[in-house]
Amino acid sequence: MKTATFKIWRGDAKGGEFHDYTTEISEGMVVLDAVNHIQATQANDLACRWNCKAGKCGSCSAEVNGMPKLMCMTRMSELPLDRPITVEPMKAFPVLRDLITDVSWNFRVKKKIKKFKPRPPDAPDGTWRMQQEDIDRVQEFRKCIECFLCQDVCHVLRDHQMHEQFIGPRFLIHVAALEMHPLDTENRIDELRNTQGIGYCNITKCCTKVCPESIEITDNGIIPLKERVVDEFYDPFGWIWRTLKRLSDKGLK
């Protein structure tokens, strides 16, 4: 059987280092299998998160050979086995232990985003009508599994640590999903520009490249939001006109 050598970062907030582990590799194996196997046989206390093993829960984010990845969706066969494979925690968040980072900031950010506020129901039975083509885009954003890999690669968070000024790509598309929801009546443009810092994004598209759900974070989410911000702040009457028109096109009286 083939073997692979791993260099796994072990440590905590005070510091740490890479430890070497060797493990056997079987067909179809993913990095998470190897890490779990090392944990079960050689390092019972190796801390890592995982749940679904199928790219659906977004728990197992880490950096594999320096690339932000879901460990459960990274096949060993994609990696060169002639040199050690490094596995380390995400960099944009404080390390708690080994591969685990403190991602609680993300949960706090989300709480501050204004919640969904639907228009009154369309039908007497309290239900709404929406056409599939009007929700395709929102459904794309709602595929997000909250793995926070996009947050991890965004230089505004990773290099400049501007967590207080900028909500990051994950939450920009969360706002986009709400703003583009055909039923939503809330307005989140003001805080997008001010407290949520959309202006810090300079459209490098690094977030889109790492998204395991292939969400077009920048082109479909951030850029249209930026346009709305520009419209509202620099052409407020035009914006009101277009919004009214958009709503009336959707059949809202």
Partner: peptide, 19 residues
Amino acid sequence: VRELEAWGAVFDRTKDGRI
């Protein structure tokens, strides 16, 4: 299920726009 829609869930639609 209808309550989920009121809380923001976006289900796939029928031709006439229902869940």
